[in-house]
Design a protein around this nucleic acid. Structure first.
Lengths: 111, 111
DNA sequence: ACAATAGTGAAGTAAATGCTTCAGTGTTGG
DNA sequence: CCAACACTGAAGCATTTACTTCACTATTGT
């Protein structure tokens, strides 16, 4: 389910914006309210809420409202899915290069 | 240089599109020409070239033209940069949870 | 009770994205 | 030489994105 292409779209899309990455960065140091997330960002609170919606839709962030304050947290499982996709491709490529290296090393043993 | 926010924008943005991820996936199995990249995709060659430009601008893919065929390759360094960003945030979050777990375990030693 | 707080929702807008088609350019096999 | 091949580039177009402002709804501290 976490390898669903559409889910990966949403995730990478979510991480493509610097404001959203900053929000994730903030949340990686601990939970925060919407206003706390908004504080370092040079944009309206409305804009921040919209970014938050993107992050929640992507599964990267979860939030809960208690009274009038909504508290947000990272969902590390989602981050792991993105990491996993990248890791697989990078590994495939690097294994290929290794095999190629081995091949070249072998075939140059024409002494 | 690889931690430049603008560069990360381009990278995650590049990975946000399923067609582009498919291209990266193909390239992770070895170099390919533009037409080879285009072959499994249900879109015009022009569109594929545009996706390729996005991938090259992001640093994820490098290409070189010999005669009339352009050969594309993955740039694993770039993939590593994206992976690194994610990894740092996830680790920060998980360390936090661990510390919190320790704290809770300790303070419940009120026997 | 009431003002301040914390967030929500709906428009509206400018710019960016993901295509398309069509008209090229340089390369190469026969 | 010339037709097929492998792109390349520009223009156009529909949709999505990243905001804005403004009006509004709950909560809460005093």
């Amino acid at each position: 389910m976490l390898h669903d292409p559409a889910q990966l779209d949403l995730m990478f899309q979510a991480l493509a914006d610097p404001a959203r990455r900053q929000m994730v960065d903030r949340l990686s140091r601990g939970p925060a309210s919407v206003s706390q997330l908004a504080e370092p960002l040079a944009m309206s609170l409305s804009a921040v809420v919209q970014h938050l919606n993107v992050l929640e839709a992507s599964g990267l962030v979860r939030s809960e409202k208690l009274g009038r304050v909504r508290t947000c947290q990272i969902e590390p499982k989602a981050l792991r899915a993105a990491e996993h996709w990248i890791n697989e491709r990078r590994n495939a490529w690097e294994r290929r290069l290794d095999r190629l290296g081995d091949f070249l090393a072998e075939t140059s043993d024409e002494t």
